Computed example of a mutant assay.
Amino acid sequence: MTPVLDVRSVTKVHGSGDTAVHALRGVTLRVERGDYVAIMGASGSGKSTLMNIIGCLDVPSAGRYRLDGHDVGGLDERRLAILRNRRIGFVFQSFNLIPRMSAQANVELPLAYGGVRAAERRRRAVAALREVGLADRMRHEPNELSGGQQQRVAIARALVTAPTLLLADEPTGALDSRSTGDVLHLFDGLHRAGRTLVIITHEADVAAHARRIVRLVDGRVVSDQPRAGAVR
């Protein structure tokens, strides 16, 4: 079966000459369908750069990256945007919800960009909000929701396109401990349902929910191991 992510010997260099910064130094990473991976690293380790490449928000300086069998390096910006919209569901630390739009309208946005008709957008948005436990908050605007509820709306928005990969960048960084637990419990359920998840985090308690932990130091993978007790 084709892996969801196939990253091989990827490097990323910013600048040139004496001022060049080597953000990634030959990273190789493979993520199979249904896997749940946490990518960990301190500030400056390269984890954000790797997330941008995995998410098709940036391209490597060298090496190869395939997303769901598609060679990302060979795509122009338009095709890259289409692949990103159809294959990846993003969850960010800051939620990135649109103020003065209801939860349902926020969740519908990726489908609107994809040209999905209004009735189908509504149906899929309602289903996604139910999946994250917010069936009773569909008409609420972001400022009427708690931080944890806003992040669950963001997760519903990420799920509504039925993406191949759910990619989360520090998804609990702006949440209190109770909301963090709720979001991590939701991720656990999505994994059990067969979703493929990659979480970028520097928090060990967040990574502990993943099935596998990848550690980056100075742009290199220094360990890639199943979490203690996880069944591979």
Rank of each mutant, 00 (worst) to 15 (best):
T2I: 12
V4M: 03
G17C: 07
D18S: 15
T19D: 14
V21C: 04
L24G: 03
R30M: 11
V31L: 04
V31Q: 02
E32G: 14
E32F: 05
G41I: 08
A42S: 15
A42N: 08
A42I: 01
G46F: 07
S48A: 10
S48C: 09
M51H: 03
M51Q: 10
I53M: 13
G55T: 07
C56H: 06
D58V: 10
V59N: 05
P60G: 03
A62H: 11
R66W: 03
L67W: 01
L67Q: 00
G69S: 09
G69M: 06
H70F: 08
V72P: 00
V72I: 12
L75D: 08
D76N: 14
I82D: 15
R84W: 10
N85K: 04
N85V: 00
F90W: 07
V91Q: 07
P99F: 11
A103V: 07
A105K: 14
A105S: 12
A105R: 15
V107S: 05
L109Y: 14
Y113K: 00
Y113Q: 00
G114F: 00
G114K: 01
V116I: 15
A118L: 12
A119H: 10
R124Y: 04
A128L: 09
D136Y: 03
M138H: 01
H140W: 10
N143Q: 12
E144H: 11
L145H: 08
G147S: 03
G147D: 05
G147F: 05
Q149R: 05
Q151T: 08
Q151H: 09
R152I: 09
V153Y: 07
A154V: 08
A154S: 13
L159N: 05
L165Q: 07
L165I: 06
L167S: 05
A168V: 08
D169S: 09
E170Q: 06
G173L: 10
G173F: 12
S177N: 11
S179G: 04
F187S: 00
G189S: 08
R192W: 01
T196C: 08
I200C: 01
A204R: 13
H209L: 05
A210S: 10
R211S: 15
I213V: 15
V217D: 14
V217L: 13
G219M: 07
S223R: 12
D224P: 12
V231C: 06
